[in-house]
């Protein structure tokens, strides 16, 4: 198989995930896009591992081991990420990342209309 097929597919999947991370508002949709990006990297790792294990007689299988590690870390990441999103939702009543601007610098687009949230943030 031509190596360009999996490489191009993983590049396109990565850019799809990149678009999702930048363009989505819901935090859970952003997490889904991060999963797509991680999977694109996994496909790259697997393809290059298969290529190297034949071409260079590489017996370490580092690509597949790293893919397993990436999958595990992605599972941990999605657990922690969802726990954080749920905690934010319980505190703020929203999971819209465009509205979570407490640490934003510059002029606040919502004006001084959110003193309660800032007070809560200051008391934390």
């Amino acid at each position: 198989m031509h190596l360009a097929y999996p490489a191009v597919l993983s590049a396109l999947l990565f850019c799809t995930g990149l678009y999702g991370v930048l363009a989505r508002r819901n935090a859970i949709l952003v997490l889904m896009s991060v999963e797509i990006m991680l999977n694109a990297v996994n496909l790259n790792l697997v393809a290059f591992d298969v290529w190297l294990s034949r071409t260079a007689q590489e017996t370490l299988h580092s690509g597949q081991a790293l893919t397993l590690f990436t999958i595990t870390i992605a599972a941990a990441e999605i657990g922690i990420g969802l726990a954080i999103v749920l905690a934010v939702y319980r505190n703020r009543g929203t999971s819209d990342i465009d509205k979570l601007r407490d640490t934003a610098e510059g002029p606040d687009p919502e004006g001084p209309g959110t003193p309660a949230a800032e007070k809560a943030e200051a008391s934390a």
Partner: peptide, 21 residues
């Protein structure tokens, strides 16, 4: 569901896709 910077995100994604491919 999509935020306001959708077109900037599209531009970034297409540029990186072209470069990577």
């Amino acid at each position: 569901a999509d935020s306001g910077n959708r077109w900037a995100a599209l531009a970034v994604a297409i540029a990186s896709a072209v470069a990577l491919v």
